[in-house]
C-alpha cells in the first residue's frame, strides 16, 4: 500500500474528447467546431453524432425521425404521459413534468427496458445463429431464461398487430433500409413465436431495434437514440392539463381507493409486533 488513491490520477483538468465551450469564442463538439463545421446539421444528426461519434446517412436520419414521429402518442392515460399530465394538473413546471415523464419511460413493461433487452437479444441471437445454432433453439432458450422476449406481444393489446409496424416498414422500404440482416432475423423470430404456443406478434420495439441495429448502432447507442422518442406526445398532455382547472385531470374521489389491508386498529393500545 503506497498511500495513494487511484482517483488521484483523475484529479485536475477534465480530459475529454466529447467537447466543451470557450465562452465568447467557440464550442467544440466531438473534435469539430460546432459553429462552423456542424452549424447546419439537423438536430437528430448532431444528437446521434454525440452518442456514437459517427454520422448517419440522410436516408437513415429520415427513417430515424419517422420512427420517433410514429410512436408519439399524446394519450394522457399512458403511464409516462400521465406523469406529465399530472404535473400540469398540479401546476408544476413543464420541464419537471416532461423530464419525469421521460424518466418514467425507462419502464419494464414498455419503453427503454424492453428496448435494450430486445436489441441485445437480436445481437446475441444473430451471433448464435452465425455460430451454427438453430434460431428456434435460441428463441426457446431465451424464453426458458427470461419467460418472454420483449418486442413480441404487447401488454395493452396482446394479439393485435402493432399499428406502427406497417407504416414504419413502408418508410424503411422507401429509404432502401428494409433489407438488413437484423430485420430478417426479427421476422424469423416472429414466425417462430406465432407458430408456437406463444402466439406473440412482433411489436414496434422489435421492429425498431432491428432497423436501427441494421444501421450499425449498438444496443447501448440505440438506447440513447430512443431517449426522446416519446417526447412529442408529452407536452400536449401537460399543456392540456394546464388548461383544465387545477387538479382536475384524473381526479380521484376518496371512494376510488379500494382498501384491501388490515382492519382498523388502535395505535395506542397496540403492543410491539416485530
Amino acid at each position: 500500500m503506497n498511500g495513494t488513491s487511484p482517483l488521484e490520477a483523475w484529479e485536475g483538468p477534465l480530459r475529454t474528447t466529447v467537447g466543451g465551450c470557450f465562452p465568447g469564442e467557440r464550442a467544440v463538439f466531438r473534435g469539430h467546431d460546432l459553429h462552423t463545421e456542424l452549424r447546419d446539421t439537423s438536430w437528430l444528426d448532431l444528437y446521434l453524432f454525440g452518442v456514437t461519434g459517427r454520422r448517419q446517412t440522410p436516408a437513415q436520419i429520415r427513417l430515424l425521425y419517422a420512427m420517433w414521429v410514429n410512436t408519439s402518442y399524446p394519450d394522457a392515460r399512458l403511464w409516462n404521459n400521465r406523469v406529465a399530465a399530472l404535473a400540469g394538473s398540479a401546476r408544476s413546471t413543464g420541464i419537471l413534468g416532461v423530464c419525469a415523464a421521460i424518466a418514467t419511460s425507462e419502464a419494464a413493461i414498455y419503453g427503454r427496458q424492453v428496448d435494450v433487452a430486445i436489441a441485445d437479444f437480436l445481437v446475441r441471437a444473430r451471433a448464435a445463429v452465425q455460430s451454427g445454432r438453430p434460431l428456434a433453439e435460441v428463441v426457446a432458450g431465451e424464453l426458458q431464461v427470461n419467460r418472454s422476449i420483449g418486442g413480441y406481444g404487447r401488454p395493452v393489446a396482446k394479439s393485435a398487430a402493432d399499428e406502427r409496424n406497417a407504416v414504419v416498414l413502408e418508410l424503411a422500404r422507401k429509404e432502401g433500409l428494409a433489407d438488413g440482416e437484423y430485420l430478417k432475423l426479427a421476422f424469423a423470430i416472429e414466425a417462430i413465436l406465432l407458430a408456437g404456443r406463444w402466439r406473440m406478434r412482433m411489436n414496434y420495439a422489435a421492429l425498431a431495434a432491428a432497423l436501427v441495429l441494421d444501421m450499425g448502432l449498438s444496443p447501448r447507442e440505440y438506447y440513447f437514440y430512443l431517449l426522446p422518442s416519446f417526447l412529442a406526445g408529452m407536452p400536449p398532455c401537460f399543456i392540456e392539463a394546464s388548461e383544465r382547472p387545477a387538479q382536475a385531470t384524473f381526479p380521484l374521489r376518496c371512494s376510488a381507493l379500494r382498501h384491501e389491508g388490515p382492519a382498523r386498529r388502535p395505535w395506542r393500545e397496540a403492543g410491539t409486533i416485530s
Binding site: 475529454t16 474528447t17 466543451g20 467557440r26 467544440v28 469539430h32 467546431d33 462552423t36
Partner: peptide
C-alpha cells in the same frame, strides 16, 4: 467549475 482539456480540440477556426 473545473478546468477542461479537450484532447481533440481543432482550435479556433
Amino acid at each position: 467549475f473545473f478546468a477542461i482539456d479537450i484532447i481533440n480540440d481543432p482550435g479556433p477556426p
